[in-house]
Amino acid sequence: MANTAQARKRARQATKQNAHNSALRSKFRTAIKAVRKAIDAGDKAAAAEILKASGKTLDIIADKKIVHKNKAARHKSRLAAAIKAMA
Results as ranks from 00 to 15, higher is better:
residue 1 M to E: 07
residue 3 N to T: 02
residue 3 N to Q: 06
residue 4 T to D: 02
residue 4 T to G: 00
residue 5 A to T: 03
residue 5 A to P: 02
residue 6 Q to E: 04
residue 6 Q to P: 00
residue 6 Q to F: 02
residue 7 A to M: 04
residue 7 A to F: 00
residue 8 R to A: 06
residue 9 K to L: 08
residue 11 A to N: 01
residue 12 R to H: 08
residue 12 R to P: 00
residue 12 R to M: 08
residue 13 Q to T: 03
residue 14 A to R: 02
residue 15 T to M: 04
residue 16 K to D: 05
residue 16 K to T: 10
residue 16 K to N: 05
residue 17 Q to S: 03
residue 17 Q to H: 03
residue 18 N to Q: 05
residue 18 N to E: 08
residue 19 A to E: 09
residue 19 A to S: 03
residue 20 H to L: 13
residue 20 H to W: 11
residue 20 H to A: 15
residue 21 N to T: 07
residue 21 N to Y: 09
residue 21 N to I: 06
residue 23 A to R: 13
residue 23 A to D: 05
residue 23 A to H: 13
residue 24 L to N: 04
residue 24 L to T: 05
residue 24 L to V: 03
residue 25 R to W: 01
residue 26 S to C: 00
residue 26 S to Q: 06
residue 27 K to P: 01
residue 27 K to Q: 09
residue 28 F to G: 12
residue 28 F to C: 09
residue 29 R to F: 09
residue 29 R to A: 07
residue 30 T to S: 12
residue 30 T to W: 00
residue 31 A to F: 02
residue 31 A to W: 03
residue 31 A to Y: 01
residue 33 K to F: 04
residue 33 K to V: 11
residue 34 A to I: 06
residue 35 V to W: 12
residue 35 V to D: 08
residue 35 V to E: 11
residue 36 R to Y: 01
residue 37 K to H: 10
residue 37 K to W: 00
residue 38 A to Q: 12
residue 38 A to R: 07
residue 39 I to C: 03
residue 39 I to R: 03
residue 39 I to K: 07
residue 39 I to E: 02
residue 40 D to T: 10
residue 41 A to F: 01
residue 42 G to R: 07
residue 42 G to H: 07
residue 43 D to T: 13
residue 43 D to G: 08
residue 43 D to C: 07
residue 44 K to S: 05
residue 44 K to W: 03
residue 44 K to C: 04
residue 45 A to Y: 06
residue 45 A to T: 15
residue 47 A to D: 11
residue 48 A to M: 02
residue 49 E to L: 12
residue 49 E to S: 13
residue 49 E to Y: 00
residue 50 I to R: 14
residue 50 I to M: 11
residue 50 I to D: 02
residue 52 K to H: 15
residue 52 K to T: 14
residue 52 K to F: 14
residue 53 A to Q: 13
residue 55 G to A: 13
residue 55 G to N: 13
residue 55 G to I: 12
residue 55 G to H: 11
residue 57 T to V: 14
residue 57 T to Q: 11
residue 59 D to M: 11
residue 59 D to E: 12
residue 60 I to Q: 13
residue 61 I to R: 03
residue 61 I to N: 06
residue 62 A to S: 05
residue 63 D to E: 14
residue 64 K to T: 01
residue 64 K to V: 05
residue 65 K to M: 04
residue 65 K to A: 10
residue 66 I to D: 04
residue 67 V to W: 06
residue 69 K to Y: 03
residue 69 K to S: 09
residue 69 K to V: 11
residue 70 N to R: 14
residue 70 N to T: 15
residue 70 N to L: 09
residue 70 N to A: 05
residue 70 N to H: 10
residue 70 N to S: 08
residue 71 K to S: 14
residue 72 A to I: 06
residue 72 A to Q: 08
residue 72 A to S: 15
residue 72 A to G: 13
residue 74 R to M: 10
residue 74 R to K: 11
residue 75 H to M: 15
residue 75 H to N: 14
residue 75 H to Q: 15
residue 77 S to P: 02
residue 77 S to M: 08
residue 77 S to N: 09
residue 78 R to Q: 13
residue 78 R to D: 06
residue 78 R to A: 04
residue 79 L to H: 06
residue 79 L to E: 09
residue 80 A to S: 13
residue 80 A to I: 03
residue 81 A to D: 14
residue 81 A to S: 15
residue 82 A to I: 04
residue 83 I to V: 13
residue 83 I to L: 14
residue 83 I to D: 10
residue 84 K to T: 07
residue 84 K to R: 10
residue 86 M to A: 10
residue 86 M to Q: 15
residue 87 A to T: 13
residue 87 A to E: 14
residue 87 A to S: 14
